[in-house]
Design a binder for these strands. Sequence first.
DNA 1: GTCCCCGAAAAAGTCAGACTTATTTGTCAC
DNA 2: GTGACAAATAAGTCTGACTTTTTCGGGGAC
Lengths: 233, 233
Amino acid sequence: MTTPGRGLHGRVLDTLGPAITAGDYPPGSVLRTDELAQHFEVSRSVMREAVRVLESMHLVESRRRVGVRVRLKSEWNVYDPQVIRWRLAGADRPNQLRSLTILRSAIEPAAAALAARDATPEQCAELTACALGMVANSRGHKLDGYLFHDVAFHRVILAASGNEMFARLGDVVAEVLTGRTHHDVMFEDPDPAAVTLHVQVAEAVREGDAARAEQLTREITVGALQELDILAP
Amino acid sequence: MTTPGRGLHGRVLDTLGPAITAGDYPPGSVLRTDELAQHFEVSRSVMREAVRVLESMHLVESRRRVGVRVRLKSEWNVYDPQVIRWRLAGADRPNQLRSLTILRSAIEPAAAALAARDATPEQCAELTACALGMVANSRGHKLDGYLFHDVAFHRVILAASGNEMFARLGDVVAEVLTGRTHHDVMFEDPDPAAVTLHVQVAEAVREGDAARAEQLTREITVGALQELDILAP
DNA sequence: GTCCCCGAAAAAGTCAGACTTATTTGTCAC
DNA sequence: GTGACAAATAAGTCTGACTTTTTCGGGGAC
């Protein structure tokens, strides 16, 4: 992912960020900048920069004469890619994955519909190539190759939607798909029906059939929800 | 919204953030920390903290021997509430509003469906109260009262969905709705059909009818899209 | 002429210490 | 009990010196 150690303050964040998002410091608990600086063996300047970053993520709130107070989870900037990564790496991973998959299932069908209207010929070609790659890696335990094209496929859809908010969720979707393949249970070859759906989505986008692209993508995301036992009754 | 000047570095950000998001410094251009510190008449420590925050938003990237380089727009953390506020305040406002409204139209129907399944009795009551407040303020140019209940209504829906990612979009929706009422053209009373739809959504959620809640909310958001001339063919 | 290595320069990064300011808390008078 | 004042505390700010990384340019070897 992004380079880990962008300086000393980055090192501090690599430890402190995950600790806070994991709930090691319960909401309302107070940290002192000086103590943290001592604990991490860095100067106060460095520690202050780290605190500023946490503050900009709304993870903590710094107040004079009080200290650095950990904010309620409901106030965190949960769309910050860094925060998402920290939470996916910690004990909150299952919940995070659930939330993100539900988000995907809301966003991706809409993105596919827009992509069907606005995708450039290049993007259509790219999409078809990705779907082809998925097919080529769908049998014979070539999970890494399959994942690679799967991630690329969804990135293209989100980018081709022409909506910057959708496009920026590419990284999130990549994390979810990667997590599903690597961390969680996925020993066998992918579901053939899912592969077919991707091919058909590429088709629909190419033909400019927004309604069909949307519906097919919805079927893909419903599958993702079912894998996590998130059912719509 | 959030308190403006949380210290000197906050003051700097209030100027520098909008300038960058507005495109005053084109992508790739390089700033020097020392020059900025001089320009804003603050110490280097303060300037460095400000730069760290901008860096955590992926607005800039700080490299040794080079300086602080402005990143491509496609790399910005566009879900950061602060970034959204800066962009809504600048020349990019129309585009930002477009993107956010499309995002709303993808999220809110899904949130309404989940809310219909999981809303607590208290949330159902709150929702009904909001809808009632909208009705009461729907005639006689009581736009502020209407807006207040409209914002509250959508916040409750997003919160009641039980998905933290959806819930955190409450502020975004509030900004969009407020912007529509205050900045943009909205002289007359709100569309009676929209008011009715809100009342019906509250009904559907109360009755646990997920499909109906989703469909009705979709009609609300389609209305929002049409106001901005974003059409689905 | 091209390529490579090395040294100088430039800008961010780090540290330490002194000082300022806002906020809380506690005490004392009323 | 209430209100005002004083002390304590931790964040905030500034400054200056130093380190480290990266880029750029020159000079030498081929």
